[in-house]
Design a protein around this nucleic acid. Structure first.
Lengths: 351, 351
DNA sequence: GGACGGTTCTGTATCGATTTAGTTAGCCTA
DNA sequence: TAGGCTAACTAAATCGATACAGAACCGTCC
C-alpha cells in the first residue's frame, strides 16, 4: 500500500484554495468560519487522510501540549508495581482524562539532565516523593515556566499535597499500645541517610526531618511510646529501602526467626506492603496473628482489606491525593498546600 | 523573585555574538565546534538560566519527540491498578528508560478523536488489548507515520506480541482434570459481546474469535474437557467484565452460595484476580481449598504466589512482553509477530 | 446612495529550534 | 607563494501549525 504521503494543513489549504487560517479554524474554532466552508474543509481532510493539526507544531505555536508530567522518585518499574503510587497515578489520570490532558511518566532516577530537557514539553509537573537527586528538583523549579506540585514531601516555594503523617502514626500507635506490648518494634521505610535493609544501629544517620515523611511517621510512633511510658530510644527499629515483598522478606524473616523471647510481639510498620509481608511470613511460621504477634500497617491498600485477617492500618486516600494534585496543576483549584486527613482502620491484625 | 524571563537559544546566541547553529551544536553535537567555544556557550547558558533546547520546538523540527505512547484498552485508572497491565508497563518503561525515551499513557476509552490528535506527538504506539472503539484503531493505523505494535490482540498488518493462550489453558485444564471434578465450571473474563457479569446463558453472543484472546483461552479449556470425555457445552460458564475484586466478588458469591450439591468443585478462572477473589471468598465461607474447591488462575501475578495457599496458575511474563514490544517500537528488534510461551505453576489451590 | 456594522475569510509573522550548504581561517605541502 | 584541505563557524530555509490585523463582502438603515 503506497502510503499517500503525509499531508499538512498547508497542503490541504492549497488543495482547497483557501487560507491556512481557515483550515486551522475549521479544526479549532468552528465559530470563526461559515458552517459550509467548515464542512467542505473537514470532508476534504477526510478524503485526503489529513488527521488534524500536528500536535508537535501546535504545541510549539500555542505553548501548550496538554501533557502533564508525573515525576516519580523511584524507577517506573518500581512505581508501577507499588499500590500506593498506582493509586496516586489513578487519581491523577482520572482528572487529566476528564480535562483532555494526557499523562507523561518520568522517573527521578533517570539521568537528571534528561528530565527537564526532554520534558520541557509538559505543561506542568507533579512530583511524587523526594527525588534522589536534588539537582533535578532545582532544575524543575528553575524552569519556573511550568507549574509544579509536590506530593508527599515539602518543596520550598511550591504547593504540596500530603497527609497528616505524624498524627496518623500517633493514632495507630496509641491504638496498638492500649494493649501493652512486651516487645514492640518499628519497621521503617527509607528512613536512613544511607540505604540500609536491616536493623538500624546507633551509627546510622537518619534523613533530615524536613525532607521526608518518614521522619514524621516515626515521630508519631515515638510520641505515642513516650506517652505510655516506653522509652522510644529503647524500641528496636529496622529499615527497609524498597517497598517490595522481595526486599522486605529477608529483613522480616530475620526478625521473626529470632528466639521466641527476643521476637517482637508488636510490629509497627510504615507501609501495608511491609505489614502484609510480615503477616504472610508469620503465618508461614505458624505464628498466630494477633495472639502471638500484632501487626499494623500504613496506607490502607486494597490487598490488606480483602484478605483474612484484615490488616489494622491507617487509610490514606492516595487516589484523592492524585486528584487534588492534578486539579492544582491544571489550575482548577488554587495552588496551595493541602493536608489530607487519614483514617484509622482497626482490622484483625491488631484489634 | 523576578523570573528572569524565558530565554531562547536565539537570544543566547545573540548575547554571545555567535550563530544559533553553534549554540545548537554546543548542545547536540560537541564534535561540530571547538571545545573552547562550546564551553563558553555552556557556561553562558548556565549563567542566564537557559535549560537547553526547547523540547516542543526540537520535536517539531526533528520530527521525533522521544515519547512513546501506550494506548490501554481500559481506563487508566483501571489499568494502573491491574497487576498484569502494570507489569506490561514496567517492561515497557524499563526499555524506554534505558534508551532515553519517555512514556505517554493514553486510554482507548477516552474520546476517540483525541487520541490520535493529541498524540501525533508520540514517535510510536504500543496498543494493549482490544480497543472498544475500532475507529480509534483505524485512526492509529491510518496515520501510518508512526510505528505501532499490538499486545494481546491481533491487528491486521501490524506486529503483535502475545502468549500461547490456547495451549496454556489446555495445559492447566488437563492438569486440573487429572483429578476428575464432579462439577467443573469456567469463569471467563470479557467473553461476551455485550457486557455481562454473571452466568452466561445460551442467548448470549460471544466475541468473535479473531478479535480476542479470551476465545483462545476458552478453546484451550474446552479442548481439555473434550479430551477427558466431558461435554464442553455442559460445563457452566460465568462471565466477568472487569478484572477487579469489586466486580468479581458478587458473581463469585453467587456461585459459592449455591446449595452444596450444585456448587462447583473446580473453578477454571481466566485471571489470577478472579481466582484470588474466589479463593478469598471461599476461605471466608469456610470452604477448604483444595479439598472442597479447587481453583486455577491465569497470569501468575505476584500476589497469588506470595500467599498461602499458593495459586495454581499459568505464568505469563508480562514484563517481558512489555520489553519486547518496546524494543520493537524503538526499532531495536525486528517488527514481527512474537509468541511468548507460558509456564504451568502447580500451586496449592489445585495440586 | 453612502456610511456602518457584522461576518467571513486571508496574508503573514511567529513559536524555538535543527540542518544543509557555504564561508572563512588556518595550516600544510610542493 | 599559491593551491589544497580541514576545521570552525555562520546564514538562512525549514518543520507545521496559530493568531493577529486587516480586506472583502453583504445586508441594513437613514
Amino acid at each position: 500500500m503506497s502510503s499517500p504521503r503525509h499531508i499538512t494543513l498547508k497542503e490541504l489549504a492549497a488543495e482547497l484554495g483557501v487560507s491556512t487560517a481557515s483550515v486551522s479554524n475549521a479544526f479549532n474554532r468552528p465559530d470563526q468560519l461559515s458552517p459550509k466552508l467548515r464542512e467542505r474543509i473537514l470532508s476534504e481532510a477526510r478524503r485526503l487522510g489529513y488527521r488534524g493539526p500536528d500536535a508537535k507544531a501546535r504545541s510549539l505555536r500555542t505553548g501548550r501540549s496538554r501533557i502533564i508530567a508525573v515525576v516519580l522518585a523511584e524507577t517506573l518499574t518500581y512505581s508501577l508495581n507499588d499500590a500506593v503510587a498506582s493509586e496516586l497515578l489513578s487519581g491523577i489520570a482520572e482528572v487529566l482524562d476528564a480535562h483532555g490532558h494526557t499523562l507523561l511518566l518520568l522517573s527521578g532516577r533517570q539521568d537528571a539532565s534528561r528530565v527537564p530537557g526532554s520534558s520541557s514539553i509538559a505543561d506542568g509537573f507533579i512530583v511524587y516523593g523526594l527525588m534522589p537527586s536534588l539537582v533535578l528538583l532545582d532544575e524543575l523549579q528553575g524552569t519556573g515556566r511550568q507549574p509544579l506540585v509536590a506530593v508527599d514531601f515539602d518543596l520550598e516555594g511550591q504547593p504540596t499535597v500530603h497527609v497528616d503523617d505524624e498524627p496518623a502514626c500517633y493514632a495507630i500507635a496509641r491504638h496498638a499500645l492500649t494493649t501493652p506490648p512486651r516487645r514492640p518494634a518499628v519497621i521503617n521505610l527509607r528512613l536512613t541517610e544511607q540505604p540500609c535493609n536491616g536493623r538500624i544501629g546507633d551509627d546510622q544517620a537518619l534523613l533530615s526531618a524536613e525532607r521526608t515523611i518518614t521522619r514524621a511517621r516515626l515521630a508519631g510512633f515515638q510520641r505515642a511510646f513516650a506517652e505510655v511510658g516506653i522509652d522510644p530510644a529503647a524500641v528496636p527499629m529496622w529499615n527497609i529501602e524498597e517497598n517490595t515483598f522481595e526486599v522486605c522478606a529477608p529483613v522480616i524473616e530475620a526478625i521473626l526467626d529470632a528466639p521466641a523471647d527476643e521476637r517482637p510481639d508488636l510490629l509497627l510498620c510504615m507501609s501495608d506492603r511491609i505489614a502484609l509481608t510480615a503477616l504472610t511470613l508469620a503465618e508461614q511460621r505458624g505464628l498466630r496473628v494477633p495472639e502471638d504477634l500484632r501487626i499494623t500497617g500504613f496506607d490502607g491498600i486494597a490487598e490488606g482489606q480483602y484478605r483474612a485477617p484484615r490488616l489494622t492500618t491507617v487509610r490514606q486516600d492516595s487516589v484523592e491525593k492524585g486528584r487534588i494534585a492534578a486539579r492544582m496543576i491544571l489550575g482548577l483549584s488554587p495552588r496551595e498546600d493541602r493536608l489530607l486527613s487519614t483514617k484509622l482502620i482497626v482490622g484483625d491484625t491488631c484489634p
